[in-house]
């Protein structure tokens, strides 16, 4: 565990709520992005992250420091996300969800200043998110942790509480499944574009 985290946790246990705020600030975006990609809904993701932080705060005394703080936090957040997924209604597409809620600013706004580029990127993001949403929860989570959060196999095994071999085999199957879904979507979109001029007429 990082020394900084340890210091902040110790301060938090001494009763300084501001130290907890610092921990939140440190991990909120990572956690939010992972949960957002898992649930596909900005509002639910925000609620889940909030719940996860509160649960962590409530049981901070129980955190023994055996694992890294953020893997412990991830485990809590994933449990909440899975619960939320179970009881929530079917997932809406990201674009639909984003109409209801203001979109958070991207990390580097200058990069996306051009409308064409922004549109293209949004389309690609949406297609990828759709493919992700069609994966099973197990495959989706393992891909998010590996590719979006860039966690090691050991960290993923620790968070999901599964053996290393299972991480590897799940990742293998998840990658092939995602490829199959993306190919299928590309095929569908190309076949629909063939008919598009006729439809216009």
């Amino acid at each position: 565990m990082a020394d900084d985290d340890r210091t902040l946790i110790a301060r938090c246990l001494q009763g300084r709520v501001e130290a907890f705020g610092e921990l939140v600030r440190r991990y909120q975006d990572r956690l939010y992005n992972a949960v957002y990609r898992f649930l596909g809904n900005a509002e639910d993701a925000r609620d889940v992250v909030q719940e996860a932080f509160l649960s962590a705060f409530r049981s901070l005394r129980r955190f023994r420091g055996g694992s890294q703080f953020f893997t412990w936090l991830y485990r809590i957040a994933i449990n909440h996300a899975v619960d939320c997924k179970r009881r929530s209604k079917p997932v809406r597409a990201l674009s639909e969800a984003d109409q209801d809620h203001p979109k958070p600013e991207p990390a580097d706004p200058s990069v996306f200043a051009n409308p064409d580029w922004q549109l293209q990127r949004l389309e690609e993001d949406e297609r990828l998110q759709q493919a992700l949403s069609q994966l099973s929860s197990e495959y989706r989570m393992v891909l998010i942790l590996r590719d979006i959060d860039e966690l090691s196999y050991e960290q993923i095994a620790d968070i999901l509480d599964i053996p290393l071999g299972t991480v590897r085999s799940r990742l293998h199957r998840a990658r092939l499944e995602l490829r199959r879904l993306l190919e299928q979507m590309e095929k569908d979109s190309s076949s629909s574009s063939v008919f598009a001029p006729e439809l216009k007429r």
């Binding site: 709520v17 907890f20 600030r25 909120q28 939010y32 600013e105 991207p106 993001d125 590719d147 990658r175």
Partner: peptide, 27 residues
């Protein structure tokens, strides 16, 4: 390519307001 596309998916930020809200909830 798939792996890279996932890696460079748009990242969202919750901002300082979220941390402040969490501190309030903790209090």
């Amino acid at each position: 390519n798939d792996s890279l596309r996932l890696k460079y998916l748009r990242r969202e930020q919750l901002g300082d307001a979220f941390a402040a809200h969490m501190v309030q909830l903790a209090r």
